[in-house]
Every structure is written in C-alpha cells, then in structure tokens.
Design a protein around this nucleic acid. Structure first.
Ligand SMILES: [Mn+2]
Ligand SMILES: [Mn+2]
Ligand SMILES: [Zn+2]
Ligand SMILES: [Zn+2]
Lengths: 129, 129
DNA sequence: ATCTGAATTGCGAATAGTTCGCAATATGAT
DNA sequence: ATCATATTGCGAACTATTCGCAATTCAGAT
C-alpha cells in the first residue's frame, strides 16, 4: 500500500504540502532535516513541512534520528537505521532487528532510537593526508 | 581514577561549578537534563552548567540521550543505556555491548546512541484503570 | 604569600529548531 | 454547489542552548 493511500485510510486529507513532502521523501535516498526539506520545496511553508513530518512521525511512517538537536527523517518503508559521518553527513543504512528489544518486561509499547556516527573513509583520507 | 583526577589530567582547571556538577552527577541515579541540574545547583550559572556538561561530553565522561530535544546526562562510569517511560520519565539502565558496532568497516571512530522508550508498569496500570 | 597570565565564570543578549494562534483557504462528503 | 471542518501560511512565540565580553578565579612561578 502506498503511503498516500495509508494517509487517506487514517483519515487525513490529501493536500498539496503533504503530497510534496511525500514525493520528496520517496526520492531521497539519505536522511533529511525539516530545514533542508523546506529549502527543497520552497513552494510550501516551513510550518507545513514541520506539521507534515510530525504527522508522519506520529503514524510511524518515517524514521527519525537526531543529530546535533536536529531531527533527520527518512521513510520507514523497512526497519533500518543509519550510520552517519560526523564530518560530511554521508549516511549508510543498516538493517534493524526489532526483536532485540523484546526483553524489557517492565515496559510496554517499546520504541527504540539507534544512531551510529563515525568518520567515513573519504573524510578519514582527507584528514590524514 | 576519580573523574576530578581525570579532569585535572586533561588540563582543565578544578573550579567550583565543575565540582558541583560532578558531585551532583555522582549522586544522581537516573538521567538528568541541564535545566534540571541547574535547578538543583542554584548557586552556579546556567551557562556554566551547559559548559561543564559539554566538556564532560567531549571527554566522554558522561553518556547523553536525547528525549524530546532535551539532552539527558549521566556519568559514563560503565557502558550502558536507558529505557525511559514516555509518560513519567522513569528510567532503567541496561548494559551495552560496544562490540556490536564493530562491523561498519566503512567508518572509523564509531560512536553510538541508543535510547529505548516505553510505558512503565506503573503508568500502564494508571492508564488502564 | 604574592604575582600574573590564562582559563573560566556570570550576565544578558542572541541563536536555532520548532511550535503556536489565527484568519484565510482547500478538501471531500453530501 | 454547498457546507463543515481540516489544513494552510504567516508572523510571533517558545525553548534549549550558545555567545560576547567584562569580571573573577585558578594554578604555576617567583
Ligand atoms: Mn533510510
Ligand atoms: Mn545511567
Ligand atoms: Zn564523511
Ligand atoms: Zn512511567
């Protein structure tokens, strides 16, 4: 089921801002912040970008990672996380095994947020030459 | 080696604000934010609390988790993470196996940030009664 | 113990990401 | 087409954090 269909099923109206944000996220292969998303979609307001991303987050349709207080988003089409270069922001995905976190009997409704950061090969080379 | 000794070794001055922050963190069994730390140590300035925590973070002497855009700190005396109740903020620790993240050959100097959130037993009971 | 230069502090102003209030507009059910 | 209401755009507001800078404190040398 496409994400826009999911949104409709959840009772949300299918508006131009939402369409544009979804379109962009579907193209984007990496992580993107609200701020950069807004730069890319100049036609819609900053607040609408934030509101749409919040909605997608609430419905678990995007993954969120926080780097330096800024939320970074990508579509949650499959369970995964990212490792992000602290120098240049380059990101790679890796799969996520949700079962890993089943062991916490004292809590229910467990969510998890895992972010790895490092220095990518390219930046490492630049630094050391 | 005590943390204050470590700080001295790293060339930092041993000041009243730093002492007070360290003292408080050593007592604290849970996670605490800069804001709440400042409430507890009224004698020192907000900016000094932030500056000390940043210093401790840079030197890897505290663990940091971000919940709703606020950084939460605890002493990094042993490798661990927390699972935090989304309703009341109650936190439990769990051990961390750093070797888990060695597999990312394309990155060096890997750091990781893992945060679990859930609803604790107590809050779960309250909600359903 | 005093001196001294550098590190650190406190203060208030500034910043950055995000949210809010509200009037105007777009949506989709009838 | 009409209508109720969900959503938008705009600017102002909010919150955690940082910054600039003068005043203070620290630690090492005398
Ligand atoms: Mn991704
Ligand atoms: Mn802890
Ligand atoms: Zn890089
Ligand atoms: Zn709770």
């Amino acid at each position: 089921m496409s994400i826009s269909t999911k949104l409709a099923k959840l009772g949300y109206k299918f508006t131009k801002p939402r369409l544009q944000v979804l379109n962009y996220l579907e193209k984007e292969k990496s992580l993107i912040s609200a701020r950069n998303l807004h730069k890319k979609i100049k036609a819609i307001d900053r607040a609408s970008v934030y509101r749409t991303l919040n909605l997608l987050e609430k419905e678990h349709l995007v993954n969120v990672e926080i780097i330096e207080k800024e939320k970074l988003y990508c579509l949650a089409d499959h369970p995964h996380h990212h490792i992000i270069c602290r120098k240049c922001g380059y990101a790679e995905e890796f799969d996520c095994d949700k079962n890993e976190f089943k062991k916490f009997y004292n809590f229910s409704n467990i969510h998890h947020q895992l972010t790895l950061t490092g220095i990518c090969n390219k930046c490492n080379t630049i630094t050391n030459e």
